[in-house]
C-alpha cells in the first residue's frame, strides 16, 4: 500500500465518520425506526469505484468501529456493521454486472443496507416485528440509492486525476 493510497483511505474513512455523525444529528426523513438516508454509503460507493473492494471494506470497518466509540455503543455498532457490510457486499457483486451503471449498483446497495439494518433490529429485539418496516424501506431505496449515485458520480468525475489506481 503506497502512502498515497493509505492517505486516501484515511481521508475517506474520516469523511464517512463525519457524514454518519452529521446524519445522526439530522431529523430522520421518515418516522421509521432505523431509516437513514445512508450518507456514509456515498463514501462506500466512491471507495468501491475509485479504489476497489478491499480498500472500501477497510474504510467501512474503520468508520463503523470509530463511529461506535464516538456515538452509541453496541446496538448502533450492530446496525451500522450489518447495514454497511450488506451494502458493500451487494455493491461489490453488482459492480461486476457490466450492464448496470453506478445508479443500479447504488440502488442495490441501498436496498441491501435496509435489509441488513432490519436484520440487526430483529436480532436486537428478538422479534420479527421490524420485518413489517422492510417493504417501506425497500420502496424508498431506489430514491436514496439514486441520490447516493448522483453525488458519487459527481465526485468520481472530479477526482479522476488524483486518485491512486483501482485495485481488486
Amino acid at each position: 500500500m503506497t502512502a498515497r493510497r493509505l492517505a486516501t483511505c484515511a481521508v475517506l474513512a474520516a469523511l464517512a465518520l463525519a457524514l454518519s455523525y452529521i446524519e445522526g444529528m439530522l431529523p430522520p426523513p421518515a418516522p421509521l425506526p432505523g431509516f437513514k438516508l445512508g450518507l456514509a454509503n456515498i463514501v462506500t460507493l466512491f471507495a468501491l469505484c475509485a479504489l476497489g473492494g478491499a480498500d472500501a471494506l477497510a474504510i467501512l470497518l474503520t468508520r463503523v468501529l470509530l463511529g461506535a466509540m464516538f456515538a452509541s455503543g453496541a446496538t448502533a455498532l450492530l446496525f451500522s456493521l450489518l447495514g454497511g457490510l450488506a451494502a458493500l457486499g451487494t455493491m461489490r457483486v453488482l459492480s461486476r454486472v457490466r450492464a448496470l451503471s453506478i445508479y443500479g449498483v447504488s440502488v442495490g446497495g441501498a436496498a441491501a443496507h435496509h435489509v441488513g439494518q432490519v436484520c440487526a433490529a430483529m436480532l436486537v429485539l428478538g422479534s420479527a416485528a421490524p420485518l413489517a418496516y422492510l417493504p417501506v424501506l425497500l420502496a424508498l431505496s431506489p430514491l436514496s440509492g439514486a441520490l447516493t449515485a448522483f453525488v458519487c458520480a459527481l465526485l468520481l468525475r472530479r477526482a479522476r486525476g488524483f486518485l491512486p489506481p483501482r485495485e481488486g
Binding site: 469505484c49 453488482l94 450492464a99 440502488v107
Partner: peptide
C-alpha cells in the same frame, strides 16, 4: 471509469425489481 456514471435501462430494471420485491413483501 467503471462502473458507468450515467443511468441506463438496466438501472431502471434494477430499481423496478426492488420496488416489486417491496410490493410482494
Amino acid at each position: 471509469q467503471f462502473p458507468d456514471l450515467k443511468p441506463n435501462k438496466a438501472d431502471a430494471l434494477a430499481a423496478l425489481a426492488v420496488l416489486l420485491l417491496a410490493a410482494a413483501l
